[in-house]
Nucleic acid binder design. Structure first.
Lengths: 162, 162
DNA sequence: CGTCCATCGTTCGTACACAAACAATTCAAA
DNA sequence: TTTGAATTGTTTGTGTACGAACGATGGACG
């Protein structure tokens, strides 16, 4: 894991200083997975924002809409798990979608803890339209890669996002 | 019950329904780059948080610290560009690092718009310690991949984060 | 010399992201 | 059957993320 120098008995101050120096410039931020993942994600959301501008949907609102259209209905927490959002984040996302009239929320008669979410008619329309754009956005995001690189990347990325 | 006859002029209700179904499930959220990038990034920050817990550094605070230790000194906007943060985000990150006494800020005598950032002694120490952990975190993040897959992934990811 | 334009840092508003604590409810095990 | 653990949704607090507008400064141009 962290760099360890080969086992030697004693090290001079010089050697220690040199090692420390090497260690300092050795770690390059722009080559680290985390930083690159963040930047790739930044680029993707920029593309997303641009293509989804006229629908005024954020990536998370989009995800919730699409997923809800898949499963028909779901409780808040359940939809959150399906879209990889925690309950607190879901709170805000759903609130805004309800305010826009794309989603409806009603209590579950069988379990009074639950709130059942469904799409409104308008929500269904927007979801359909958005899914089309979603496809374009994915293509644009992967544009810098050739066909086979694209497949390879998606396969590997899938293993880092279990 | 629905018998599927090959190529016919008219389509049965069954067939139309099946097509619609196929179309609906055609766009699968969990297979889209954006969603997977987001989840991979989530996983990485979880690993980061865990390993960096005792230093109490967030990924962005870490990035600013490391980069500033690389370049010695920088204006806020400049450091922001080096770490891929916009000016508004930088504001908060720097504010918290100054509050913790890891960074110092003083006006640039040559350009009165600029604020020059430098590490404090403690900031330098923390940066050094954090860089070590940074290695571990990168390794852990890429752990699900084998050696050659790791290299391939980083190469491809680099093209999506220009 | 003045004017226009870019850059610097700041603030405001919106939207994630998630830990932590909470009340209400459900469910399982003693 | 009653106690206790787990689940559901909510709120609070901290920290990104970024568009948009702002005042102050600097530099290039005619």
């Amino acid at each position: 894991m962290a760099r360890r120098s080969a086992g030697q008995a004693k090290k001079s101050v010089e050697e220690l200083r040199e090692e420390a120096e090497a260690l300092r410039t050795d770690y390059r931020l722009e080559e680290q997975v985390g930083h690159m993942l963040r930047r790739a994600h930044q680029r993707h959301t920029a593309i997303f924002q641009e293509r989804m501008a006229h629908l005024q949907l954020t990536p998370l609102q989009f995800a919730a809409l699409i997923k809800l259209s898949d499963v028909g209905m779901a409780s808040q927490n359940h939809l959150g798990r399906l879209t990889a959002m925690d309950a607190a984040t879901m709170q805000g996302v759903i609130k805004r979608l309800i305010a826009r009239g794309l989603i409806e929320r009603r209590p579950d008669p069988d379990d009074r803890r639950r709130l059942i979410l469904t799409l409104t008619t308008e929500g269904r329309e927007i979801a359909r339209e958005a899914a089309d754009l979603g496809y374009d956005i994915s293509v644009l995001t992967l544009e810098p890669l050739g066909e086979s690189d694209r497949k390879a990347f998606m396969r590997l990325l899938g293993r880092l996002a279990p």
